[in-house]
């Protein structure tokens, strides 16, 4: 299937519509604040468990996200019935307009493309995870509070054969002007990765 450039805006708009329609009609919802305080309780517990070793906390959040991502993707594919993305540009659209929309009801902004179009940034506004949160002073510099999102994205993308690196580069909670994470494609995986194979 070849797609011309002129049809990309139509595609993009239809992704938006798809995302909105699924969110509106096919998604059971709960209050964001409940979600936020659940995640908050988890992070606070990790602070206690790891005695403020922030790199371990970041990793734990990432691991958690990864395990969620590898399963979440199934629900996503089932509900959207979207075909595989042929490139990262399309992938970025699907992630920002559909995935974030139907799970978190936000549509991050895609920007900062690399020259060869293999990496981009997502600018996240109204991050539901960080509602009410103020980081303690000593944690501010080193903790990526929403690191679970990176894990989710990595796990989900891996299941659709995209080996990516996902990491935060800025966070409002740290005092940065915006919350931004990067996704970079490493390679396309040829074979299916069996889950849980040691």
């Amino acid at each position: 299937m070849s797609r011309s450039r002129s049809s990309t805006t139509t595609q993009s708009r239809s992704l938006k519509v798809t995302g909105e329609e699924i969110w509106k009609n096919k998604t059971e919802k709960i209050n964001t604040e409940l979600f936020a305080l659940t995640y908050g309780a988890l992070v606070a517990q990790l602070f206690e468990d790891y005695d403020n070793d922030y790199s371990l906390i970041n990793e734990r959040l990432f691991s958690m996200g990864y395990n969620i991502g590898v399963r979440l993707i199934e629900d996503f594919l089932a509900r959207t019935a979207l075909p595989r993305c042929e490139d990262m540009v399309r992938t970025s659209e699907v992630i920002s307009k559909c995935a974030f929309k139907i799970f978190l009801n936000i549509t991050p902004h895609v920007t900062n493309w690399s020259n060869n179009k293999d990496s981009f940034s997502l600018i996240i506004e109204d991050n539901p995870l960080s509602e009410f949160v103020e980081l303690p002073m000593n944690a501010k510099k080193q903790i990526w509070y929403s690191n679970v999102l990176c894990g989710v994205l990595k796990g989900a993308l891996e299941m659709v054969q995209l080996d990516c690196d996902v990491w935060f580069v800025a966070d409002i909670l740290k005092g940065d002007p915006q919350t931004e994470l990067k996704i970079k494609l490493n390679k396309i995986l040829k074979d299916e990765i069996p889950i849980g194979d040691d």
Binding site: A36, L37, G40, V43, A44, E131, F132, V133, E134, L135
Partner: peptide, 15 residues
């Protein structure tokens, strides 16, 4: 609602 705030902690944030 701040996960890092405990009941009876002093509130010191400038905000």
């Amino acid at each position: 609602m701040n996960p890092f705030y405990r009941l009876n902690d002093p509130i010191t944030t400038p905000a």
